[in-house]
Design a protein around this nucleic acid. Structure first.
Lengths: 163, 163
DNA sequence: CATTTTTGTTATATAAGACAACAATACTGG
DNA sequence: CCAGTATTGTTGTCTTATATAACAAAAATG
């Protein structure tokens, strides 16, 4: 590769400027950054496992809360999940349109809705969760191990207490 | 799973439908859910610490990466942070308008921009980081402890490897 | 009773993120 | 060298997520 006689040779030597690994700098020690990257990775894996179910994490969480607390009022469900009640309306609307959950009159309070899963919703949630455990949580435990997962859950709880 | 029965005869004493603690149900064992709650709490605390700096997590991350890798190309910065290059444009625009970062011609590639912090940007980042360590990370370590933080960082990295 | 609070809802705004297209430039194989 | 292809920064557009304000109906309060 002798230099073909080219006029106006670039002043810089042609060092191909390879891919240096990019130093994270201050981010390396920032818990929030590392937490976010991990959370995005886990949600991504969740979505892959839920392909075919058309179920996003927030939707799953709503179904799970209703299943564990049938008849709970709408406001209490959204509050428990940290979802603003205004935004919760459309979320629940879709679950209701899909016949997975339903709003019922709350006994003793005509303002409130008591939320329940439909029979279809219960079966759907059970299937989704089985898929989740079989694929998603399986992959999680593959990289983490069961003991480390429990350890991690405990550490995360301490952080959640920050807010 | 429990059938959505009426609460006809509570086995416990006559608690008049007070605020039961809301059972997390399936969510209790779902790492993604717990991760998200922790991440939101930590980001919330970050935002509190950065009040007055008008600096969101993503903006901080951009400044930190540029500071640690001066002259890095725009595409490499966005890629390192997992930010889609189209969305990165406006993000960088704002940092440039605030005179914290600047686009410079990349030597040897007229398509690319080499990114640098301005002197103001370097001072700003240093101040922001000092505030962050003094307040945010301090609170984090208060609930977590230094050793547990390092432990947690290691566990999070394993999860990030999922994606 | 009058007043205030709660509940579900709509409307609206912003931020984040994904995706497609495009012009300019760089790279590649012949 | 050229023609086709790939990359870079950019704009435009969509979709989610999230926050706030306002409102009517109903409940709680005093």
């Amino acid at each position: 590769m002798a230099a073909p006689r080219r006029k106006s040779a670039p002043v810089t030597a042609e060092i191909p400027e390879e891919k240096q690994p990019v130093d994270l700098g201050l981010l390396d020690n920032l818990l929030g950054y590392r937490l976010r990257r991990a959370q995005l990775a886990v949600f991504q894996d969740f979505l892959v496992a839920m392909k075919g179910f058309e179920l996003r994490p927030a939707q799953f969480s709503v179904l799970a809360i209703i299943a564990a607390n049938p008849g709970l009022k709408q406001s209490r469900v959204s509050e428990a999940l940290g979802i603003n009640r205004a935004n919760f309306v459309a979320l629940l609307d879709e679950l209701e349109q899909r016949k997975l959950a339903r709003r019922a009159p709350a006994p003793g309070d005509r303002r409130s809705n008591a939320l329940y899963l439909t029979p279809k919703g219960e079966g759907f949630l059970k299937d989704a969760y089985r898929h989740l455990v079989g694929q998603h949580e399986k992959r999680v435990e593959a990289v983490l191990g069961s003991a480390d997962k429990q350890l991690l859950l405990g550490l995360l709880d301490k952080l959640t207490a920050l807010a």
